[in-house]
Lab assay of single mutants.
Amino acid sequence: KLCLVCSDEASGCHYGVLTCGSCKVFFKRAVEGQHNYLCAGRNDCIIDKIRRKNCPACRYRKCLQAGMNLEARKTK
């Protein structure tokens, strides 16, 4: 099974979405830290295992598009 954000090996369902541990922690920190990420490109950066750290804005956008939600952990 692959992470729906970066296509690395998924470690489980986190915040409602099948993700790897790295994307799970990234999403939690992004939401709780209330980061205002900005993409230096055109908001279409490739997010994969190798390049997932290059653009936090696009990675966060991809987390949201996949359906990640901090509240999902509280309902399970």
Rank of each mutant, 00 (worst) to 15 (best):
N43D: 12
N69V: 09
C55N: 01
H14M: 05
Q34G: 14
T75K: 13
A40H: 04
C45S: 01
G41D: 09
V31L: 10
L2P: 03
R73P: 12
A66V: 14
Q65S: 12
A10M: 04
L18A: 15
K49M: 11
L64D: 04
T75C: 07
L38R: 12
Y37N: 10
D8P: 01
L4F: 11
N69A: 13
H14G: 05
F26Y: 03
V17T: 15
H35I: 08
C63F: 03
E32G: 09
R59K: 03
V17W: 02
R61C: 06
K28R: 10
N36A: 11
A57V: 02
S7I: 01
R51H: 07
R29L: 11
A40W: 07
N54R: 09
K24S: 15
C20D: 00
C6Y: 02
C3G: 00
R52M: 06
C55I: 01
R29N: 12
M68A: 03
E9K: 15
P56K: 06
R52W: 06
N36Y: 04
L4Q: 14
K28E: 13
C23S: 03
K62R: 09
N43K: 13
K76M: 11
D8L: 02
L64K: 11
F26A: 00
K49R: 12
P56Q: 12
V31P: 02
K53I: 07
A40E: 09
Q65V: 10
H35C: 06
L70E: 11
C63D: 00
G12R: 07
K1Q: 04
K28T: 12
C6A: 00
I46W: 05
G33N: 15
D8T: 04
L38P: 05
N69F: 11
C23V: 02
E71I: 11
T19K: 01
C20Y: 01
R73K: 13
M68V: 03
D8W: 03
T75W: 15
R61T: 12
A66P: 01
E9T: 15
S22D: 15
A57K: 08
A72N: 10
Q34E: 09
C63V: 01
E32C: 10
C45M: 00
C20L: 00
K28F: 07
L2C: 08
Y60V: 04
K49N: 08
G33K: 14
Y15M: 12
R61D: 13
R51D: 12
I46T: 14
I47L: 05
F26W: 03
L64H: 07
A57N: 04
E32A: 05
Y60H: 05
S11L: 14
R61F: 06
F26G: 00
